[in-house]
Design a protein around this nucleic acid. Structure first.
Length: 501
RNA sequence: GCCCCCGUAGCUCAGUGGACCAGAGCGGUUGCCUUCUAAGCAAUAGGUCGCAGGUUCGAAUCCUGCCGGGGGCGCCA
């Protein structure tokens, strides 16, 4: 009903209620608007109210109100933009969860950043967040990992469907050095530890952490049988062809326990999510998955519903695939295709700030092309530097003007550039709230870009430190408030805010 | 065949719970450093918003049907 206007000429906010009422009341929207407008009680923040065709009521903020926001924003510091809207709701965000059978690929990095920033946004919005990594530490893939290492130690070729990357050789060499017995099970354990050490090192460089590593094998200490029993009691389990099936009710049932005795990932997913939602009692669970797992969402939610859980408590964010453009050549990344650029390699090449910022510059459900050449360019065409440079400029001028004394007179901040900067700043809490509601981290990057642009224009057009003490003090406070806002935005994105560049 | 995502400027993408000239970045052209960082600012060119219907006072946005790209539909993960 109340929306922000897209065009400054229409004020700051607009009310579209008359347009919506028009149909119900069967009257012209302009007429309704004209009657409604005088009834709106304006507090001192708004200067003007006007009716515009075909029936908008537009509201304009008073400059004096905008000017009065500067000092509180500067004073709020890290708190500016945070809220308690989540009311401490126990929320889990699960992300990365890559199998410990090989190093992270660059495409995993996207899900890692999306999950991490979702967690940061929710924390800033008053949710109680746990960050979890689901560790697939059992099953066929793990057995293959052990066998692959063993084969490498013996100089044999890996088993069918096994792993053959250089890291397998490295692990095999290290296992030999440490005198690990040539046993597939022991080597699998050894391999998991070695691979996870690499994964956590990469994540650490990307500034991504988890609170909990949840082991898949721990699900099979009681909970699995209990859950199977519960499904059986609902009449949703059948046995045929030597396997155990989940009866979906449609024409296609799903295997839970394979003929060889291994549970399928579907089974583990059911057990795991029951553990999250019931045993551990998270009110809401956010899973960040690759888009290639889309097919699992429906059946998992169905199973949870059969077990009596409200499936809407589980939110699955599907992150689309990434391709990498480098030197004019596009490399499409796919987990399955096995071709991929490692995350480590990209961190070496472009650094964590650019990797994070670029991932956040795209909505998660859009395929993205990562332009390596652009990301590593140390120049003005690089959006990361554009935003960081705005921060560095403010830091510099604040240091330059640190000796200035004088009482700020905020009414002096009356140029279009100053007022525009304040308008952008005061939106920040809304941006955080909207990003949290929609679970859309990319909104932060777009906002940051807009804020940086307003800062650069302000800096360019308003000489901050001058002979005019009152104006200087006011502009320095504005610079402080802008720097606070930008710092907080970078903080939620996990991007550094440099004081010098 | 069915399901999900995408199709908007030369390129990469926002906007898609309706309305305010259709936006940003990169790339193109052109101006601006005696003064707190030019990694900046300013101007300019460039688009049948995939196609066709429909709903509406109004559609890039909602509905239907097509077309194109990607992903999924396994006792793989």
């Amino acid at each position: 009903m109340v929306e922000r206007t897209g065009n400054p000429e229409h004020g700051d906010y607009s009310v579209t209620l008359p347009l919506k009422l028009a149909k119900v009341l069967r009257r012209a929207p302009v007429q309704i608007a004209n009657e409604l407008a005088p009834l709106i009680e304006l507090d001192e923040s708004f200067a003007a109210i006007s009716v515009a065709a075909p029936g908008f009521i537009n509201l304009r903020l008073k400059p004096v109100w905008l000017q009065a926001q500067v000092e509180p924003i500067a004073a709020a510091g890290p708190e500016w933009g945070r809220s308690e809207l989540g009311k401490g709701m126990r929320t889990q965000v699960e992300y990365v969860s890559s199998n410990p059978t090989g190093p992270l690929l660059f495409s995993h990095g996207r899900g890692a950043v999306v999950g991490d920033v979702v967690a940061r946004i929710l924390e800033a919005s008053g949710y109680s967040v746990q960050r979890e990594y689901y560790l697939n530490d059992m099953g066929r893939q793990i057995r293959l990992l052990g066998e692959s290492i063993l084969a490498r130690m013996r100089g044999e070729s890996p088993p069918e469907g096994g792993y053959s990357g250089d890291y397998v050789t490295e692990i095999a060499d290290e296992a030999k050095r440490q005198g690990v017995a040539a046993d597939a099970n022991l080597l699998a354990d050894f391999g998991i530890k070695a691979v996870m050490a690499g994964i956590t090192r990469d994540l650490d460089r990307l500034r991504i952490r988890h609170d909990n590593w949840f082991s898949e094998s721990s699900l099979y200490q009681g909970l699995s049988e209990e859950t199977l029993q519960a499904l059986r009691a609902k009449g949703r389990v059948a046995e045929k062809d030597g396997a155990v099936w989940f009866v979906t009710g449609s024409d296609k049932d799903e295997v839970l326990i394979r003929r060889d005795g291994y549970p399928t990932y579907f089974a583990s997913d059911i057990f795991y999510h029951r553990d999250k939602l019931e045993k551990r009692g998270f009110e809401r669970v956010v899973d960040v998955w690759g888009a290639d797992h889309q097919g699992q969402v429906g059946r998992l939610k169905q199973a949870l519903e059969v077990l009596g859980m409200d499936p809407s408590r589980l939110l699955v964010l599907l992150v689309q695939l990434v391709s990498v453009k480098r030197g004019g050549e596009v490399v499409r990344m796919s987990r399955r295709a096995g071709v991929g650029i490692s995350l480590e390699e990209m961190l070496d090449e472009v650094g964590p700030d650019a990797v994070r910022y670029f991932f956040l510059l795209r909505s998660a459900d859009a395929h993205m092309e990562f332009d390596v050449d652009l990301a590593k360019r140390q120049s003005n065409d690089n959006p990361v530097y554009y935003a960081q440079y705005a921060h560095a400029r403010l830091a510099n001028v604040l240091s330059f003007g640190s000796a200035a004394s004088g009482e700020p007179v905020y009414s002096r901040l009356d140029s279009e550039w100053e007022l525009e900067l304040i308008r952008v700043m005061v939106r920040w809490p809304d941006i955080v709230r909207e990003a949290a509601d929609a679970l859309e981290p990319h909104r932060l990057a777009f906002y940051t870009d807009e804020l940086a642009a307003a800062i650069h224009r302000f800096y360019k057009n308003c000489r901050i430190v001058s002979d005019d003490a009152a104006l200087t003090a006011a502009r320095l406070q504005l610079a402080r408030a802008a720097k606070t806002t930008l710092t907080n935005a970078f903080g939620l994105m996990g991007v550094t805010a440099p004081d010098r560049m």
